[in-house]
Amino acid sequence: MPRFDNQTVLVTGGTGGQGSSHVRAFHAEGANVVIGGIDAERGAALVDELGTRALFTHLDVRDESSWSAAVHAAESAFGALNVLVNNAGVQNPPAPIEQTDPATWSRILDVNLTGTFLGIKVATPALRRAVGGAIVNIASTMALGGTAHYAPYVASKWAVRGLTRTAALELGRDNIRVNTIHPGVIATPFIHEPAAGATTAIADFYSPAPFAIPRLGEPTDVTRLLLFLASSDAAFITGSEYVIDGGLLLGPALQAETA
């Protein structure tokens, strides 16, 4: 039996590289999927691909009223909301702190942090109406250390860690679990294409050669972990953090020289 039969899952940033992978996998596992995003053309194409049990809704995660409309759309179409995946995120153009525009700082935190906060705030009553469920916040390995020239993004993802733990404490008695995934360098346009205003991409700074598993991650690597955390298989897991980076944070995997 598919793990998400008769459940409804809302994925923000649902038309992007990781988001669309998550949406497809939840749908394949029997879920009704609500694709939250701002790209209506990509959203419509994904709905057409999936067919039944799929809905696109315009969702600007910075706007509480947009969140309310998205949650209402999920409940109206499918009767309940059982899982929220806070996946939407944006990256700043690389720059040292002293050269970072405050407007850039605000934009990154508005999407990555405030967007996650608003999602938890607005979705919680719906999850209670469904008698519990799961929230999974997609953070980053940049939330586990410092990264030069990416202060807005790093700060936003560090803050998501604290927000996740607080929400887990507040919502556990309502049978709502809240966990975080920290992806490393995942092969999507997010890391292969420069952020708005930038000329270099994140992938330009990382070679997978020293990783313990010497390759970039694939969206499906993250998706498989997400499905577990959102499912009843993880019923006793909340407030936890999961790193999926091929060993990036472990340091370089040195190869022994051979004669």
Rank of each mutant, 00 (worst) to 15 (best):
P2T: 12
T8L: 04
L10E: 08
R24A: 10
E29C: 02
E29S: 04
G30I: 07
G30S: 09
N32P: 03
V34N: 00
G37P: 06
A40W: 00
R42Y: 03
G43I: 09
T52P: 10
R53V: 07
D60H: 04
V61Q: 04
E64T: 13
W67P: 08
A69H: 10
G79F: 11
V85Q: 01
E98Q: 12
E98G: 09
A103Y: 01
W105I: 02
N112D: 13
N112V: 00
T114W: 09
T116G: 13
I120F: 02
T124C: 03
L127S: 12
V136H: 01
A139H: 02
S140Y: 09
S140M: 05
T147H: 13
A159G: 12
E170H: 02
L171C: 01
R177D: 06
H192F: 09
H192M: 08
E193Q: 14
G197I: 08
A198G: 09
A201W: 01
A201C: 09
Y206L: 12
R224E: 15
L225H: 05
S231D: 07
S232L: 02
A234K: 05
I237Q: 00
I237V: 15
E241M: 02
V243E: 13
V243C: 06
I244M: 09
D245L: 08
G247Y: 10
